[in-house]
Structures are given as C-alpha cells and as structure tokens.
Design a protein around this nucleic acid. Structure first.
Length: 430
RNA sequence: GCGGCUAUAGUUCAGUGGCAGAACGCCUGUCUGUGGCACAGGAUGUCGAGGGUUCGAUCCCCUCUAGCCGCCCCA
C-alpha cells in the first residue's frame, strides 16, 4: 500500500521554516499598520463568476488554472453552483468592498490580506499549486482621492520599505503604465499593425501571441526577436493625456521619496483588470519566477463586478518567493532558545519544570532537558537548541544559585535564582 | 498543458545484471557535574511505486508518481 503524501504542488512547512514565515508576516503586519492599513479576510472559495468577470475569461488563470467544481445541490429544487478556490485575492476584496458598501463611508479603504491562493499550474521552484500571497488594496470613491497618483506612489514607497525591513536586498522596481482600457485597445491595434509585416521572422511563440495576445510579444525572451521587438511601438505613445499626466505624477512623487525604479516599456501584466500604473518588484536567484510581487491600478474593476465606480491600486507578493529569497540571502536563521535547563538526575526533573515555568512566565524561550541524560549529553543537546545552558543540580537546588554557561563565550557564571530571568534576557555573549 | 534531467540511509550523494556503500548527522563508550576536538564501537534502507525482460533487476525496458530546470504563465 502506498503511503499518503502531500498532493502535488502543496507542501508542509515544518518549524524550521515557519519561523521565517512568521517573521515575514509579522514584518508585513507592522509595516501595514504604520501606513494605516487594516486586515481583511475573504473566503478561500468564491462563486466562479467572480474570477471569470474580475480576472478575465481569456487569461490563463481563468481559462486553465482554476480549481473549480460544481457544488452539490441539497434539494431537487436547488440548482448547483459553480465554485472556485481563489487564484488571487483582489477580486475577492473588491467583491467584499461592493457587498459591504464600503464606498458609502466616503473614505478610502486600505485593506491588506495574507493567505493561501490556488492555481493548477505545473509546480517548480517558486511556483506551487497552493501558495501564499501578502497583498494590499487601496480603493474608494473618486471623491476620496482613490484615483490620485499619490496613492500609487505611496503604495510603491511602502513596498520598498517593506522589502527593506524584511531584509531583502537587491530588488528592482520595474514600472510602466498601460493606460486606460481605451488606450490599451488602441495600443493593441497599433501592435497588431506593426507586427503583421514582421511576425513571420519571429519565434513560433510570438507568431501565436501576435494573434492571441499581442501584448505578450513584448515579454518574449528569445534573443533573435529582440531587435524586432525594439522596433515595435511602445505603449507610452498610445496613452491619452490624462494617463500621461497621471504617470508623470507617480514618478515625480517616487523621485521625491527617493524610491528607485526602472521604466520598463515592456511590462504588461497578465490580468485583464489592470489600468494605468503597473509594476513588478523582481529579484535574481528565483530562476524563471523572478517576480517577488506584482501589482497595479484597476480603475474599472468594481464596475466590472457590478459595483459603483471605485478606482483602486494594489499588489500581491508571493510569500513563498520571499522565503526563498531570504533563505538564499542567508538572512534566515532559526532562532535559538534563551536557555536550556539541564537537571542532573531524574530526581531534579520536577524542580527543573518549576524553574522552566518561572522563566517562561518571564517571557523567555526555554528548552527543558531531562535529568536522565548524562551531563555531556545535556550539553550536546543544549548547544544545538539554545544559547545558554542552566545547570540545575543538588548544589544549585540547595544554594539557590544556578550555574549558567554561555555557548558563545564559553563563560560560566553563578547566578542567584532571583536574578536568573534578567540575566538570561541579556543578549547572548554578554 | 509541453520539453529535458533526476529519484539509493535522517541529509548530501557514489555504485554494481549476482549479499547495499561513503561522508555528514544520529546512538553508545573512553568521560557517574561540563559541549564544540579526538579516538573506539554501533544502528539505519521495501535502492520512489507498479509491471516486464532475465536463472537472478537497485542496475536494462515500459507505465505511473514526485522533485528540479526550461517553456507557457504568474506571486
């Protein structure tokens, strides 16, 4: 009989890894709080129509990557409903915004989320079928300033801060504007026209893209195609005046805030709802999946879902990819316990538990040994899991003065029990 | 969804058509209150799963599964 395993594209995160995940999430929550974002939690599955309308029927995500099923009808009269595990979270957030009439507050809504998303893709490094995204959305009625380029710049500045505080170095911000829906349609036509005479000289993928989705030709990585792509019209030439002014204001604010970016005329994002500002933060070392996060403005999404006009901007970062990047940067290290308590002899186990309780109450991370171990074994175990060992033998129990050895310095100290918690809360090596 | 590579001890990986190997890690002892070093000893595997060829398969063939890399796409 074969043993059961986690299904393809899913995985278990063991304590050696979850420490880093928690640190990333804690950093994100702290930064979001400073920018006055509040958390939203939407359901993991939604009506399939939400994604079909919100993300776009023609996108790969909707057309071939969703986990969709017909929910069973409970009565003869009840119709089945098509449900889908969320492949991304923006559509769900906007649905909630509409459903709870958050626009009626008249205030800008600043919402963040952290949670699993699901796409049925072929797994590889940095790409899983269940993956976690950390994202945020700024959305509201136009009167609340939701359309302002300052919002775009603020979100981008927040992301730069967030990555820095997580310890991710070496990222690049790539920025572009895809204009309004009308701009994009106009550009698509311009691209088609420009591609028509040259497409037969390009790679087979581009020949296909030229028909199905001309914007994708810009993403082509085939070296031989690059000279041709360089001759194609750029989207900035197709922007109307309003989009042009908007983008200029975004970059001006970024310059003022000292956020470095690269204008990437070829950055066109795959989801249908994006308008105007689009961006990606990328990082080397992630292989083919070099995008740490992506996002952009979606001024028409609420209306596409039947809601009021509610321009917005948001992003989603791949938490799994943040973890991979940090691990590669070796910024990740499993934290060691503050102390390992080593009772000498099983008879001292109860006293050791009492001491452990006392220290844990004081907020220390404590590993409790076992009196049956020889002291040598206690030392070996302690050295792997903690920064210091606290020896609790008969002498210590009688005198109330404990023996503490610091593994970093090798120094051994006698510490009165009453002062132990304070002593142990000092950084290791002091 | 497509193409390539891979799967052997806890981990990283050698290896052979005829009894399964190394390093590291782990356990024990030298050492009954002092770790990292050293020395001596020890345990561990359905050789990813299923089928086929063969006297005999971990090795050759097929199928499946999973991982990695690339494509597609994306976080």
């Amino acid at each position: 009989m074969s043993t059961l395993k986690a299904v393809r594209g899913t995985r278990d995160l063991l304590p050696s890894e979850t420490a880093l995940w928690n640190r990333i999430e804690a950093t994100a929550r702290a930064v979001f709080a400073r920018y006055n974002f509040g958390e939203i939690r939407t359901p993991v599955f939604e009506d399939t129509a939400l994604f079909a309308r919100g993300v776009g029927e023609e996108t790969d995500i909707v057309s071939k990557e969703m986990y969709t099923w017909e929910d069973r009808a409970r009565a003869q009269s009840e119709k089945t409903q098509s449900l889908t595990l969320r492949p991304e979270n923006t559509a769900g957030v906007v649905r909630a915004y509409i459903e709870h009439q958050l626009g009626e507050t008249g205030q800008l809504q600043k919402l963040y989320y952290i949670g699993p998303q699901f796409r049925r893709e072929r797994p590889q490094k940095g790409r899983y079928r269940q993956f976690s995204q950390i994202g945020a959305e700024v959305i509201g009625p136009t009167s609340a300033g939701s359309e302002s380029p300052l919002r775009d710049a603020e979100v981008l500045e927040m992301l730069a801060t967030l990555l820095d505080e997580m310890g991710i170095t070496g990222w690049t911000l790539e920025l572009n504007s895809v204009g309004s829906a009308a701009d994009r349609a106009r550009y698509n036509e311009a691209l088609r026209a420009a591609l028509a005479p040259v497409v037969d000289k390009m790679c087979v993928d581009c020949q296909r893209r030229a028909v199905t989705n001309p914007l994708r030709v810009l993403d082509c990585k085939v070296a031989a195609d690059q000279p041709i792509i360089d001759t194609l019209p750029v989207i900035s030439d197709s922007l109307d005046e309003a989009s042009r002014v908007h983008f200029a204001a975004v970059t001006a604010a970024l310059d003022a805030a000292g956020v470095a970016y690269t204008r990437n005329h070829r950055l066109v994002r795959g989801l249908d709802y994006y308008t105007r500002t689009t961006f990606e933060f990328t990082h080397g070392g992630l292989g083919a999946q070099n995008a740490l996060l992506g996002g952009g403005r979606y001024d028409g999404l609420s209306e596409m879902l039947g809601g009021p006009r509610a321009p917005g901007i948001g992003f989603a970062m791949g938490e799994d990819r943040l973890v991979l990047t940090l691990q590669a940067l070796e910024a990740a290290h499993a934290p060691k316990a503050d102390a390992f308590i080593a009772p000498l002899g099983e008879g001292l186990n109860p006293a050791a538990l009492a001491l452990a309780k006392e220290l844990r109450r004081a907020g220390l991370r404590v590993e409790l040994g076992e009196g049956g171990f020889r002291l040598k074994k206690s030392f070996e175990a302690a050295d792997k899991t903690a920064r210091r060992i606290v020896i609790m033998g008969e002498d210590e129990l009688q005198s109330g003065i404990l023996t503490v050895k610091d593994f970093a310095t090798g120094l051994q100290t006698k510490v009165p029990r009453a002062e132990l918690a304070v002593f142990l809360s000092k950084p290791a090596g002091e």
